[in-house]
Design a protein around this nucleic acid. Structure first.
Lengths: 316, 316
DNA sequence: TATATTTGCGTAACTGATTACGTAATTAAT
DNA sequence: ATTAATTACGTAATCAGTTACGCAAATATA
């Protein structure tokens, strides 16, 4: 098993599967040892029924943590052996009440010695181990219940990505990147308009000199995201979030979220009251992002862009 | 998961399987998160090949602990994706040398971040656990390697059975059992002979009074095994092990071994030099038992029994 | 040198689970 | 009282592995 020590914990799934196989392997042999005509996979169902009460297929499935078709199949196999009997529920014709037959009850008595011995064997292994497998499984079940492995990995990914992403202020040397990243997506989804060129060709005069700001997200030093805060001339101290662009290369690297978050923080620290933005509903990831940051849909503002079909606002 | 706390450790296989499923479940999603077009089940093969060298199907299978058909199938799937390339070994036409293609090497670089994050996620779970699953698996793998679960269960069974089996000296009240148990097997496999009746009908006169002994094995108080030591009249102080019978009810309960062992001990403690016995090779379990106790095949002694086709002897 | 055994590996069938889907019975809603 | 939604559960297809088997190539043996 040296292999798994090399791969690292990613392989925990594979490794678990192999141990499962090894533990399960001997199952059939063990029943044979006790002269019990039973398949290992029947055991959970069998045990659940041995508690005495009649149970439906679905109840059994929930009990033992299998899907109901699995239980359905197991029951039909046990039926063939005569270990269980079925009866229709009188008040509910869909339900199939299953219980141990006389023969099944006999088997359940014969099986007791086996349970004792297997238990003892497992305990023996436990006693020779520093780390208790049984308890470790319980802890994992609990922790995965709280938060799935996928969710945990997503968090780790975000953490790591965040370290690589650096938010910086605009400098003239970034003008080309600011232009290119915006042209890329605008011309992909729509067509460039008059006001686009104005802002992208001359961010200094059109945005910064008018009291606006531009932030960039550098991923490992390379500018992969840009976003402008344009001062609005509505009499109050509000900004429009505009010209936000993230390179497809940065997809899934959390760049958009970090950048937009930084922009909101910037506006807040400047003492702005509101951030306004215009977008289009076909840009679903963007809309989702704005929503996540707290932007709410508003309507009715005049806009120079034909591509705008949704307007949003965040009160700071 | 309350269910498993009730069943006891017998269900460790089921429980392991369910945890395996849960851990594996998210696998495909995780690859998607990193935009990697790969199936979780490919990972072990992929990882093994990423070490650089060309490997054959069989080498890969051994490496990752799968069967070779499994690897064969995985390789053919990865081939379709263009992640690996095959080439025939020039010196051995059977071998199929597999290595990562250029595309595969690219993927292996992309995958690195994912390995880091999954590792971190697993470590996080570990840090929140008292019992380390990863290490516990390692310990189980080691201990099962040393001695399989089946073997351990067998030992536990023997221990428990031995406690229930009691070896006692013959008393007149056991004469019926002594007779019945012997008649059962002799008439099942052969036919009762003159000398059988003599010994079975009158053990006192025919065996005990002539310096012989009879031991019985009681299983939970019930006599299920009998065995006689008949003093031989060959001039030395030797015994013949005879009229050994174990009830089919006691099958697999270790009764035969305990009984025969006790008989050998008895002879030894009496200062006998040898134990001799006659049997038939169709009684395989019996022959095995004698063999296990150290009896060796001998030949040439005269015998009154037509059913005897093998003679054995144990020098004490 | 001929023959037997071993090895590599692909195909086929099986296994123990799953998800997907369909049908019938029950319950809820209008 | 219909109609819609939910529930119970069986069948079929799928999945990721396995064992069984057979062929061809290589190696060992007589």
């Amino acid at each position: 098993m040296n292999f798994f020590e090399q791969t690292g914990k990613v392989a925990i799934g594979s490794r678990l599967r192999m141990l499962t196989d090894k533990v399960t392997e001997d199952g059939a042999q063990i029943y044979k040892l006790y002269n019990i005509d039973m398949q290992p996979k029947w055991f959970p169902v069998f045990y659940s029924l041995a508690q005495g009460e009649e149970k439906t297929i679905t109840e059994l499935a929930r009990d033992i943590g299998h899907s109901h078709p699995s239980v359905s199949k197991i029951i039909s196999e046990m039926l063939k052996k005569g270990y269980v009997k079925e009866s229709k529920d009188k008040t509910d014709g869909r339900r199939n009440l299953v219980s141990l037959s006389k023969k099944g009850v006999e088997i359940s008595k014969e099986i007791e010695d086996q349970l004792i011995d297997v238990n003892a064997a497992v305990e023996e292994i436990s006693a020779q181990s520093q780390n208790k497998l049984w308890e470790a499984i319980g802890e994992w079940e609990f922790l995965l219940e709280q938060k799935s492995l996928l969710r945990r990995v997503m968090e780790k990914k975000k953490e790591r990505d965040s370290l690589k992403v650096q938010i910086v202020d605009y400098k003239p040397e970034y003008q080309e990147a600011f232009r290119a990243l915006n042209v890329e997506w605008i011309s992909h989804y729509f067509t460039m308009e008059e006001s686009d060129y104005k802002a992208l060709d001359n961010p200094q005069g059109y945005i910064l000199d008018r009291g606006g700001y531009i932030l960039l997200a550098l991923y490992e030093g390379e500018p992969l995201g840009v976003c402008a805060l344009i001062k609005m001339d509505d009499g109050e101290y509000n900004f429009e979030l505009a010209k936000m662009a993230v390179s497809p290369k940065a997809q899934g690297k959390n760049v958009g979220f970090l950048l937009a978050g930084a922009v909101v923080e910037k506006a807040k620290s400047l003492g702005a009251a509101k951030i306004y933005l215009e977008s289009n509903t076909i840009l679903k990831p963007a809309i989702n992002l704005y929503h996540k940051l707290g932007f709410q849909k508003v309507a009715g503002k005049p806009t120079p862009y034909t591509r705008c079909n949704i307007q949003m606002e965040l009160v700071l």
